[in-house]
């Protein structure tokens, strides 16, 4: 089973991202489960969401404590949330950041990928510079950096499930797919 944990802030689309990723993997005939960490999601507050992907039905409904991947939609969260908590040996952190992976200091024993999802999102008219909606961009980056889900499946899920601006969200995912560094 592949387990992915999302860290974001309320309003950035972390929960929707976890659902779109599950739907994309489902298109690839996987069994999936995605759910928010049962917080009362307020705008700006730290939000956690989970996606599980497997070749067989997923019976375990507990929270993800040992993720294979951690996706951080807002780099400022690193200062307030232990985003790498429980991350598996040689797992991967994907960070929304202008920095290069080698300039990120989060610890040892796992891989780091970065993408400037904020810039991509704003360029496609998704939210504003101060409140960008980066979920589609970060998912595109995840597809390339992890290889766990095909960008075409993601694109199809975004076009189906994005709450608004379907084409812009799909375009942001494709651009971030090309730009992610790892």
């Amino acid at each position: 089973m592949i387990q992915i944990r999302f860290h974001g802030r309320g309003g950035q689309g972390s929960v929707v991202a976890s659902n779109i990723l599950a739907a994309a993997a489902f298109l690839e005939e996987k069994w999936v489960q995605s759910f928010p960490f049962f917080g009362v999601e307020r705008r700006g507050a730290p939000v956690t969401a989970y996606t599980k992907i497997d070749d067989k039905p997923i019976w375990d409904r507990s929270e993800i404590t040992e993720p294979d991947y951690v996706i951080v939609l807002d780099a400022s969260l690193v200062a307030v949330v232990d985003v790498t908590h429980g991350l598996k040996e040689n797992g991967m952190v994907l960070l929304n950041s202008e920095s290069k992976p080698e300039d990120i200091e989060l610890g040892d024993g796992f891989r780091i990928a970065t993408v400037d999802a904020t810039e991509v999102a704003v360029a496609h008219g998704l939210g504003s510079k101060s409140a960008p909606i980066v979920n589609s961009a970060i998912l595109g980056a995840f597809s390339k950096a992890s290889g766990e889900v095909d960008i075409k499946s993601l694109e199809a899920s975004i076009l189906k499930m994005a709450p608004a601006k379907h084409k812009e969200n799909a375009a942001a995912a494709l651009e971030a797919y090309e730009k992610v560094q790892f």
């Binding site: 599950a22 069994w31 999936v32 489960q33 995605s34 759910f35 997923i58 409904r61």
Partner: peptide, 11 residues
């Protein structure tokens, strides 16, 4: 179950 099913996506 609240959230465990109500807000969980699955096939």
């Amino acid at each position: 179950d609240a959230f465990y099913l109500s807000h969980t996506f699955e096939p």
